[in-house]
Lab assay of single mutants.
Amino acid sequence: MPVRRGHVAPQNTFLDTIIRKFEGQSRKFIIANARVENCAVIYCNDGFCELCGYSRAEVMQRPCTCDFLHGPRTQRRAAAQIAQALLGAEERKVEIAFYRKDGSCFLCLVDVVPVKNEDGAVIMFILNFEVVMEKDMVGSPAHDTNHRGPPTSWLAPGRAKTFRLKLPALLALTARESSVRSGGAGGAGAPGAVVVDVDLTPAAPSSESLALDEVTAMDNHVAGLGPAEERRALVGPGSPPRSAPGQLPSPRAHSLNPDASGSSCSLARTRSRESCASVRRASSADDIEAMRAGVLPPPPRHASTGAMHPLRSGLLNSTSDSDLVRYRTISKIPQITLNFVDLKGDPFLASPTSDREIIAPKIKERTHNVTEKVTQVLSLGADVLPEYKLQAPRIHRWTILHYSPFKAVWDWLILLLVIYTAVFTPYSAAFLLKETEEGPPATECGYACQPLAVVDLIVDIMFIVDILINFRTTYVNANEEVVSHPGRIAVHYFKGWFLIDMVAAIPFDLLI
């Protein structure tokens, strides 16, 4: 008679799926529990143990900040960024110097990925580790590398530091407007667009060049630039800015003055950032001319202004700041037409079709709590990747769950009947059967004279019903998954307890 339990259901295979997918890609990662103190490590794979030199037993239950890997060259700011990422709910990448158990130093890129439950609360953290440099290539500990984003994938490793954006290309926007319009339909740009040429040739750093990471940081200074100062900065030398009595002219307006920039070969870094931020506020060169004239017309309804409409929906549905990093990277690809469009465009503009998908598509409701890094690593669709929660398995109709209350009560009843059979069957065979043979035949009273025979008949009927119930009862397979398919249940029961239950259900007393 089957006594099969499996009270692990309803099970959740999400954690096993993450481990299996990460292991298949030869990654070095740990999984931490966000619900406990210090976000203790609950799993670390073999790749991480080989990377740091510690065994799994030495890593388990330690804080996922990996303070046991810190050393003299470990930056405090990087460690603080990892700790801050564990307090938030967004994906974050941090470069930090770690030390192995043998004392060797290596520069590592740590990717902190939160995993949320159905309520939107962070319950786990996945920390992925990628070695960037070994100890002989690690720089000085005073050099802070965590304020910069990861290198873009479309640049060669040897040319990542030679990417320079020439400031004269930004200063000569109005001069290039006529050349853009003359391109017409034969050019790649839309009317009114501004073409910015980027020099990728390796050259020595000069005062006129600005690194790509500095251009990325310009967006942080746009908020500090007032509207009046932006307007004066875009007017140009024809209309000098008016300053109040006793007030000095704005240095932001002076930063885009061609006369002032041409007199000296070098520009201050602050002026460069502010000038680029001011130019980015204009949607095209037409807006710059309109600002000089004193009238700013409404933005025209053409394809170039609607190019950012799908980007707005993608940004609203993005799951991490990696989408913004990807957008900034692609927006700086050289030799393309940049349409400086305000994100607050007309909502009635139709979304044009684009061959290049900048932001990841909208994630469906079932995966809105899973970050983009987890979705990318697992390579699963929205119909396959579940949320991290207890999910009731989908069972067929008329199927009994093996952990249901009805099955528990039924098993206790069958257990009592088995005990009765084990006690009274030998007793009936030894004593009652002998008395029946010696006594007179009682054929007239039937079952009324033999109450134990009636009980034995009921017990046999219950055993037959138990066999039928076992054909529709779920079970737990070797992978700790609840199986509810009727065919698989029948095959599993035939290979197991079916023969024993059938022999126990045969009414031998009635056959004798």
Rank of each mutant, 00 (worst) to 15 (best):
V3F: 13
R4F: 15
H7V: 07
V8L: 07
Q11H: 13
T13H: 15
L15Q: 03
T17K: 12
T17H: 08
T17E: 08
G24S: 13
S26Q: 12
S26N: 10
S26K: 14
K28Q: 07
F29P: 01
I30S: 01
I30T: 01
N33C: 05
V36D: 04
E37K: 07
E37T: 14
N45V: 01
N45S: 14
D46R: 10
D46G: 05
F48R: 01
R56T: 01
R62A: 09
C64Q: 01
C66L: 14
R73N: 09
T74K: 01
A79Y: 02
A80G: 10
A83L: 12
A89D: 13
E91K: 08
E91F: 09
I96E: 01
R100C: 01
R100M: 01
S104I: 06
V110I: 06
K116Q: 11
K116C: 10
N117C: 15
E118A: 11
A121Q: 12
I123E: 09
M133Q: 06
D136W: 14
D136F: 15
M137K: 04
V138G: 13
N146I: 13
R148H: 05
R148F: 06
R148A: 08
R148I: 07
P151I: 14
W154A: 14
A156C: 06
A156L: 14
P157V: 07
T162M: 15
F163Q: 15
S179Q: 06
S179G: 09
V180E: 05
G183Q: 14
G186F: 06
A190M: 11
V194M: 01
V198D: 03
D199N: 05
P202G: 06
P205W: 04
E208S: 06
S209I: 13
D213W: 03
A217V: 07
H221I: 12
V222F: 15
G238Q: 07
G238N: 14
P240H: 15
S243T: 13
G246E: 15
L248F: 14
S250I: 11
R252W: 05
A268C: 05
R269G: 12
T270D: 12
R271E: 15
S272L: 07
E274L: 14
A277T: 14
A277L: 07
S278V: 11
V279R: 07
S284I: 12
A285E: 12
D286A: 07
E289Y: 01
G294P: 14
V295H: 08
P297C: 07
P297A: 07
R301M: 07
A303E: 11
A303D: 05
T305Q: 11
L311C: 05
L316D: 15
S318N: 12
S318Q: 14
T319Y: 08
T319D: 14
I333F: 03
P334A: 03
P334V: 01
I336V: 14
F340V: 15
V341Q: 05
V341N: 07
L343H: 15
K344C: 10
G345I: 04
P347H: 15
F348V: 11
F348Q: 14
A350M: 13
I359K: 11
I359Y: 11
A360H: 15
K362G: 06
I363T: 09
T367R: 12
H368Y: 14
N369Q: 11
N369D: 07
K373I: 10
V374S: 01
L380T: 04
G381P: 01
V384R: 07
